[in-house]
Design a protein around this nucleic acid. Structure first.
Lengths: 365, 365
DNA sequence: CCCATCAACCAAAACGTTTCGGATGGCCGG
DNA sequence: CCGGCCATCCGAAACGTTTTGGTTGATGGG
């Protein structure tokens, strides 16, 4: 009871008060000022639920975080979430967050938010190849934008970072360093980004006429990275370079390399993906790939706002380049073990570097 | 229009339909079943805004994330947020998240959520010594529970992890290792947890009759950790052990130690706080302190639910112990540089360890 | 002087629930 | 046969807003 209260104490009707605060032109300037003063005085703020009930729109956006090992505690997500939250606030939208692990609970979370009309739309992150969420949202015409693509044939709004191009470029960089056996430590193949990164690795090797090196996949955790790297290093002909789908996997791999008595960056090269804050401080500092999380968050919100404004999803299909951040964990392939290693140690980058350059050229919008 | 629709298609009144679904006893079993069947058939779900408007409660909880350097991308927060979200879902409550940097924007975020009655209560994280949020929330009687304490004299519900006891125990451990110059790299002193950790360090040193070692503070980032550690190591009498308020600071410190040509865990001991996933994989693996994030999230929600149920905040003042996780970054103090170092390298823990033990005994509830 | 125009205001309906205070009819005890 | 009780159901109000379709009274043109 609050528009009512202003109306009563000013001897006006609720309609006039509402329209005065709403900025309509059919209220006298003097009246508007009186209303605004009174609203200020009693600390009036519209009741969100009432407005939502009446308008039919909730002015809120939902994000369902994938929980579970290697997913939820990913710093990437917090950054994305923060960016989304901050940008939404600028549009006076709320951000409703739920955590659920992929599967039944996850769909229940989406249903909960959608069916109670708690949100007007969704931002879907960490897409999977066959992603039930996308189909479900498309089926009921719920507005959404995805961070990442899927195998879904229907068109939907999305923004993705071109991990395929980035990993192809990283692979070419390693080939340029003289590496011939380049292994891959991937996140679960069901995740779309794993699929793309593997494809980039594969394509660059094929283009150079090289066979795919050994590869393995598992949860994107340090522990898995360590186990998988240990396994790959035990092969008869171990790889001289390892591409890791995430920095957390790479951190584990670096550890395995140390345990094996090898020197990362010299005996074996490692490249990660994410440019986590900690990756500057691994030993050696990790060469990695950085994606523009904050800008992506802004753009996702921007796209979703357009959709809520009635735009067609078909127009939104951004693919942004990632950026290679060279540090000290990669370098020239080692000479054969029976040859002396000389002449190259000074050339490789061996200090943390602030620089970086675009690694991909494709930027289709 | 949906209770209405069920009512119409069943020839019942809206009241009866509402009470049937609400589980009231004054509706015949047969009628209830008919209503439930019809609700299921048309996929009925109550309109959240309507229910909120009528009931006056929003069934939502707000969390305002502190953004800004060294705060927002902290994995600790994502874990906490995930735990809170999951537990709230069990209570059929929503979690509304906003990101704002401490200061004006932050208070605006709280106001936005509170004044539009968007949330029934708040969970306040990362408390500061003089925390305007606490006073503001107390002033308007808004239910909330804090993760961490403040200097606020009035009583309010909170749960804190006893960082003071944990850092005192860590300091005693270092003293037991023979260290006599134990430095501290702290997060900004305005943060309450920094204050407590420093107090624990100070108390344990005093108790052993040792002077406080050199200390410094700054943003809780790796970079700051590196700079501050570099500075402390340049002193005329550099510390032989460094206590770091967070693992991210510790990671930077380890790096600085490496640059200085020292071996962490041997020439100088380092202990962190947080037990980040990556901390098992630093070089050397980091001895650190672990706090029970998931359990804390559950308990915070539990407390807030009690408050919303009308409980008095006065009863809730949990202080939980943290757990020391010994790894390889600390160990016996180095012998004087002119004496040979022998006999002790085999005794110190030098492998990542899963174990750990309670480091504090206080657990007041 | 009358009618059209316009500025300023307003009553009432609607959004979908929950809940208060009955209303109805069947059954039982006296 | 009557009064009361119980099980079951319902009308209407209320929550606070926005919006539709007005009404009122002043002003100006013809």
């Amino acid at each position: 009871m609050s528009l009512t209260r202003i109306a009563r104490s000013l001897g006006l009707s609720v309609t006039t008060v509402s329209r005065a605060l709403g900025g309509f032109s059919d209220v006298a300037a003097a009246t508007r000022m009186r209303v605004e003063a009174e609203a200020e005085r009693i600390g009036y703020h519209p009741h969100a639920a009432a407005r939502r009930l009446r308008s039919g729109r909730s002015e809120a956006v939902g994000v369902v975080l994938p929980s579970g090992p290697g997913q939820f505690d990913d710093p990437f997500f917090l950054r994305l979430l923060g960016g989304i939250g901050a940008t939404l606030a600028g549009h006076r939208f709320d951000l409703i967050v739920t955590a659920a692990r992929p599967g039944a609970t996850e769909m229940a979370a989406y249903r909960h938010l959608a069916e109670g009309r708690r949100v007007d739309g969704f931002i879907v992150a960490r897409t999977r190849q066959h992603d039930a969420r996308i189909g479900w949202l498309l089926d009921r015409g719920m507005p959404f934008v995805a961070h990442g693509r899927t195998m879904e044939p229907r068109s939907y709004a999305h923004l993705d970072i071109d991990g395929e191009a980035a990993f192809a470029a990283a692979t070419r960089r390693l080939i340029g360093f003289g590496h011939r056996r380049i292994g891959l430590i991937n996140a679960p193949g069901e995740l779309m980004f794993s699929h793309h990164r593997a494809a980039g690795w594969h394509a660059a090797l094929a283009e150079a006429g090289l066979p795919p090196g050994p590869s393995a996949e598992g949860e994107a955790t340090e522990e898995t990275g360590m186990h998988l790297a240990t396994r790959l290093l035990r092969a008869a002909e171990p790889p001289t370079a390892l591409l890791c789908a995430t920095d957390r996997l790479a951190a584990g791999a670096l550890h395995a390399i140390g345990f094996a008595g090898l020197r990362a960056g010299q005996d074996i090269s490692v490249i990660g993906y994410d440019n986590l804050p900690l990756s500057t401080y691994t030993d050696p500092p990790l060469t990695t790939i950085e994606q523009p999380i904050d800008r992506a968050a802004e753009r996702l919100v921007q796209i979703l706002m357009a959709l809520l404004g009635g735009a067609s999803p078909a127009g939104f299909a951004d693919l942004w380049p990632a950026r290679l951040v060279p540090r000290a964990s990669d370098g020239p392939a080692p000479a054969r073990s029976n040859r002396p290693r000389t002449g190259w140690t000074l050339q490789r980058p061996n200090r943390p570097s602030r620089g970086g350059h675009d690694v991909t050229g494709s930027n289709k919008t």
